[in-house]
Every structure is written in C-alpha cells, then in structure tokens.
Design a protein around this nucleic acid. Structure first.
Length: 628
RNA sequence: GGACCCGUGGUGUAGCGGCCCAACAUGCCUGCCUGUCACGCAGGAGAUCGCCGGUUCGAAUCCGGUCGGGUCCGCCA
C-alpha cells in the first residue's frame, strides 16, 4: 500500500488495487504469460455455450475475457449468469490471441485473459439505454435522469476527461506565471445588480439572506488591495435567470485578476495561456490566427454585426451608403426604401451569401421572414449569375448600380446579396444574425478550426430606457479609457438627472472580451482603482451615495487603504470545454446539468423543503397573490 | 413573460381519421451453439400511442387544455 502511494506520488500512476492488477486498457502483447486480475463492467457477453466471451470495460478500456467451461467450470457458471453492466472481477492468464483472432479496433486486441476465476461483485438491471452503443441517439431527458449511466458511455466520459485536461492545463499555465489560487466564499452579500441572485436564508440572523456569487468580482479586487498581485480561481458562479444551451444557473468560470497592469498585460497573458491550453488539450485543432485578431467594439459590429464574431467564414457586412448617394452625399439611388432610410439617418448594408443565387422563391421568403423576425422591415435581394445581377428591386436601382452594390458586398457569381435598410442598430443586428444563421446552415465554418479574437473598447454605459438611466455595459467596476475620462458626466451636470444624449454615453471602457467561434468566452477589464472615480462611475449608473454605501461599502472603504491599479478577466469554463469538445450545448460538458426549466431530473431538485426547515428559518411559503 | 418544435413497447423510429387491440430495428427473456468481438440460429414476452377534455359513427392521427423535454425572443452588469 505504501509502495503504491509512493509510486503515485513519484508520478508513476499505479491503478492497481486488491481488485485488480491492471486496468481494462492496459494489457498488450508483451504481457502474454502474466497472471493478472481485472475488474470492471460487462460491456458485452458473447455466449457460445461451452465458451463465453466477456468484454470487460472500465474507463481505461476494454479487454476480452475468455471463459472455457472445461478449463474453469465455476467461472463459466458465473459468466453464464452475467448480463450487461454486471460488475465483476476476473483472475487469469494473459494469452496472445490465436493468429487471425486479433481485434485491431481494441488497443488490447492482441491479447485476451483466460479466466481462472470470475466473481460477480454487483448485479445490474438492464439499463434504460445502450451503454455499449455510444453512437445511438438517446433522448436527453432520459440521459439526464440516469446521468450516472450516461457518463459510463464513451462520448460523455471523453468530454469530461477533456474538461479535466482543460482545467489541469489552465492551472499549470497560471502557476507557471506566478498566480496564486485562492477560494472565495459561496455565501456572500446580495448585490441586486445585473442578474437575479440566488439567495440563502440565514438561520442565525433570521430575516436576512446570503446571496450566491454571480462572480467573485468584488472579492478578487479586494485580493488585489490585499497585495496578492496575481490571483486565479476555478470558480462556481450562480445566476437565477432563464436557461439556454450556453447558460446554466450554476456554471464555472476561470476567474483571474492581476495588479499593476494595463489592458495589454492582461490580454497578453490570457492570450498566451489560451494558446498553450488549446494546443495541449486539442492538439489536432488548428488555431485560425495567432496572435489573436483584435477588433474594437465598433469595428466588430460594423464588419460582423456582432460583438462576438465568428471569424471562421467571411460574409462581412458591407456599407452600401456611398454607392447610393450623389456627389454631395444626398441620397440618390432612385429606390425609395434606400433613399428615405439614408435621409432619415439610417444605413444600408449588405452581405453576400455564397451559392444562394439560385435559391428558390420559398427559400428567399424564408430569409425575409427571418429578417422581419429580427426586426427589419424587409430584405432586398440581388442574385449574381454569370450573365447578370437580378432582383425584384432592379427596376429602381438599375443594372449598373445593382452590380456595384453586389461588388461592394464581395459577391461572386452564384452568390445572393442580402441588403437591409433601417436604423443603424437594426441593420447591424439583423445582418449579424443572418450571417450567423447562414454560416451554420451552409456549413461555412470549418468545425475543426479554433478562431479566437479579442473585442475591446466597449462603451462604458448603455442607456436603459426602462429605468431611464445608464447602466454598465459589462462590468460596473470597469475603468474608462484615459482620454475619455472627461466624458463621465451628464449633460445636466447632475448625475441624478441623466439623459440619453449625455457625454457618458460615448465614453469607452478599458474592457476586452475574448470570443471563440462566435461564442463569448469571457470578458474583463482594467478596473477603476481610485475611490473618487469609482464613485463618479457609480453615480452615473444611478447609485446615490447611500446605495453605494449599502451595496459596495466594503469595497469603497478598501480603496481608501491603497488599491493598486489592477485588471482581470473571467472566462466561461463550460463554454470553453463545449467549444473544444465541438458541442452545441454546455450541458454536454457538465457532469450533472439542469434542464431548461432548472430541474435536476436525477435528484428531482428543486423540491419542497421539510416543514421543519422553514420553521427553523422563521419562514412560511405563502405563494403568489391570486392574479384574479 | 412570449413564440415555435417534440412526446408511440426499455431505447431509437414508422404510422398522421377506419386497412392499427399499432409496424420496424435494437434491447430483454428462454433454448441451442468451443473462437466470437454489433457472434449466430430458433422461439417468446413487452405499448390502453405523456395526461385530461372535446370533435367524430370511428382518434395514436384533428381541436383545446395541461405536464415534461428542447430551441429562440425577452432576460442574462
């Protein structure tokens, strides 16, 4: 036992236990002649009467066991009783398979174990779905109800192993760069900001609640004030909002923060880390571009219609305005939709969709319908064929102008140009969504490629028409680009009387997002480390002195005791793992995810508490007031 | 909060007003088989078609509601 532990510590993994000398993936031709013991699940049984083959499986592999009735009648009797997923231990001799009997599909296919003894350790009911046919589809709710069986299946196991490797490589990269791994509490203070908090009632202080962290944001900044200098954590985070394929109520972030840094210091480390991690975890997947391309927020929206662009395919948005105006910039296309839009301060932009020139009327109608759903009034199409450019609006635009428009979009013969004319934000949003939809539908993106990019220079604040005020675009602690610091004011001069035209609306943040293949992987910023400036920014976000005190008092106090300049980032581990594993949802890389209504189908959570649990907390469930 | 899609033996599907007390594959059970590896062969069991209500002479099939799962919008600093 001590020897086994010592070997493990020395880095020579020893998986031997009293139940096995080897794993089911370990034995090779050179082991022939060895007496071994294996333990695992019966993957499949092939019963030939007096001779039974058992494929024995553990997470390391599959080994064929032969049980011969004449050699070992007791083992044969036990093997006859075995069914799929029984847990057994087998002792016997490793033998080379007879010539021609090797199985090239198994790493252990050169050998088999002739059972001398076979013991059933655990019987198993027939599983609700196939463990040994990993490629057959199974309804996800059944998989979730029996997740422990789903994880026995090879694809799920493989993805969890990939995730484990991902976190392992992340830790290695951080420790190699002087980061300290520190755990922050899960029971913290509610800061009703942004997402809804999960709350936990306090028993010792009746009537009060803890909140589960949406992120360790304030705590990691306090660690910088504490002088930790470089911190990271694989942190569980919680947000009580509706679920999506890429959103769960609890999720995991790589959270990091660094002191005495600029934006460049943080992004340089994160980029180097992401590259080394990607290459280590998925060496077979090429990185599209290194160093990662960088776009400003404005540029990303202008060219891709998204602040998390998928760079694996083109179809960039082209500004058609210059082709639709005369020498003095007046709208003059002859097409009223375009001219009126431009005259009203709107924009006209287009994308060229590869190969859709011959699309059916129904297909084009479908695109128009999508565009309407995304908020456009309509969609102008131009089909580029070998001989001409044609479309319903051609009679207004004229052939020459239509050709120029198509060329500006980068259209080639066979492409279909989609044009949206509307308010600038609508044009960007609609074309950005169509680009993503069509990229997926037409299979334009190479699924093997990892296309990382940075997007920076986000606006500090967004106007919230409902609350009639500004709120932080990403992070309420983000710093402002130095040359924009003077913009952190309202037009009225009174932060309590904001308006959508305030200078603050054009202030840019020292904020950077990391995108991968069209997903937002994470975001971070260089923070405000001066109390006065932070208070100014909070005031613009609608906080009074009192509410600042109440929500961020601890942090504001801390900033009076010497806060270093600092910045960091948070990266979604679930999303990163899903993208590296080429999965469409993060559920596929989580051991025990929840359904879209927030249920755990295996544990049957959430559930009503015991009456005593409420009583101890002084709580009673009263339900919602009757709407009638 | 809203829109849409799905729900048929254990699993995956077919059937979409009568030909269906539901078909196919696989799994399961029983028997036979000493070289298989998705073993094979023979036989068998297994579903009131998610649930409730309605339309109809007749409903797995059409309609309404409901529950569960999924996708999207809102939401997610």
């Amino acid at each position: 036992m001590a020897a086994a532990v010592a070997a493990t510590i020395a880095g020579m993994t020893n998986l031997a236990t009293p139940y096995r000398t080897h794993t089911c993936g370990a034995l090779r031709g050179i082991d022939a002649g060895a007496e071994v013991r294996l333990a695992g699940w019966v993957h499949r049984r092939r019963d030939h009467g007096q001779l039974i083959f058992l494929d024995l499986r553990d997470r390391h592999g599959i080994t064929q066991v032969v049980v011969d009735a004449t050699e070992s009648p007791d083992a044969h009797a036990a093997a006859t009783r075995c069914r799929n997923e029984f847990v057994v231990t087998v002792a016997g001799l490793v033998e080379r398979r007879r010539p021609g009997g090797e199985n090239a599909k198994l790493p252990t296919g050169e050998i088999e174990v002739r059972a001398r003894e076979l013991t059933v350790l655990s019987e198993a009911k027939t599983p609700p779905f196939y463990i040994n046919e990993p490629d057959l589809p199974v309804d996800e709710s059944v998989r979730l109800q029996y997740r422990y069986l789903d994880i026995r299946r090879e694809p799920m196991l493989r993805r969890l192993l990939l995730r484990s490797r991902l976190v392992e490589e992340i830790r290695l990269a951080h420790h190699a760069n002087g980061f300290v791994e520190i755990e922050t509490p899960i029971l913290i203070k509610s800061t009703p900001e942004g997402a809804r908090d999960f709350i936990v009632p306090s028993r010792m202080q009746p009537g009060t609640v803890y909140a589960l962290p949406q992120s360790p944001q304030q705590l990691k900044q306090l660690l910088m004030v504490a002088g930790v200098d470089r911190y990271f954590q694989i942190a569980r985070c919680f947000r009580d909002e509706d679920l999506r394929g890429d959103r769960q109520p609890e999720f995991t972030q790589l959270d990091l923060e660094m002191s005495f840094v600029t934006e460049e210091t943080v992004t340089a480390f994160v980029e180097a880390m992401a590259i080394s991690v990607s290459r280590a975890v998925t060496p077979e997947r090429p990185l599209q571009q290194v160093p990662f391309p960088r776009f400003t927020y404005d540029e990303a929206l202008e060219r891709f219609g998204s602040d998390k662009p998928d760079l694996r395919f083109g179809m960039q948005l082209a500004d058609l305005g210059p082709l639709l105006t005369d020498a003095v910039g007046e709208p003059a296309s002859g097409f009223r939709v375009f001219d009126e839009t431009l005259a009203a301060g709107g924009r006209v932009k287009g994308i060229a969709v590869p190969g859709l020139a011959e699309a059916s009327r129904a297909r084009v109608d479908e695109l128009t319908e999508s565009a309407r759903r995304y908020g456009a009034r309509g969609l102008v199409t131009l089909a580029v064929t070998a001989s001409e450019v044609h479309g319903p609006s051609l009679k207004f635009l004229g052939a020459e102008r239509a050709e120029a428009l198509a060329r500006r979009c980068g259209a080639e013969v066979g492409d279909l140009v989609l044009i949206v004319a509307d308010r600038p934000s609508v044009v960007t949003d609609v074309l950005g969504r169509l680009r993503v939809d069509l990229g997926a539908k037409l299979g334009l993106a190479d699924p093997a490629v990892l296309a990382y990019c940075w997007v920076d220079r986000f606006p500090m604040y967004e106007w919230d028409a409902e609350r009639n005020g500004w709120h932080a675009t990403h992070n309420p602690f983000s710093g402002v680009v130095p040359e924009d610091e003077a913009l952190l004011v309202t037009a009225s001069g009174d932060p309590e009387r904001p308006s959508p035209d305030d200078p603050a609306g054009s202030a840019r943040a020292m904020q950077y997002d990391l995108a991968l293949n069209g997903w937002e992987l994470g975001g971070g910023s260089v923070r405000i480390h001066q109390r006065a400036l932070l208070e100014r920014s909070f005031a613009l976000q609608g906080h009074t002195r009192a509410s600042m005190r109440q929500k961020f008092g601890g942090m504001l106090d801390a900033f009076e005791y010497g806060a270093p300049p600092h910045g960091g980032i948070a990266i979604g581990i679930d999303r990163w793992a899903a993208l590296l594993a080429d999965q469409a949802t993060i559920r596929e890389v989580m051991a025990f995810p929840k359904t879209s209504s927030g249920s755990d189908l295996m544990l049957d959570a959430p559930s009503a508490p015991d009456p005593g649990q409420y009583a101890e907390l002084g709580l009673r469930y009263v339900g919602f007031p009757d709407p009638a």
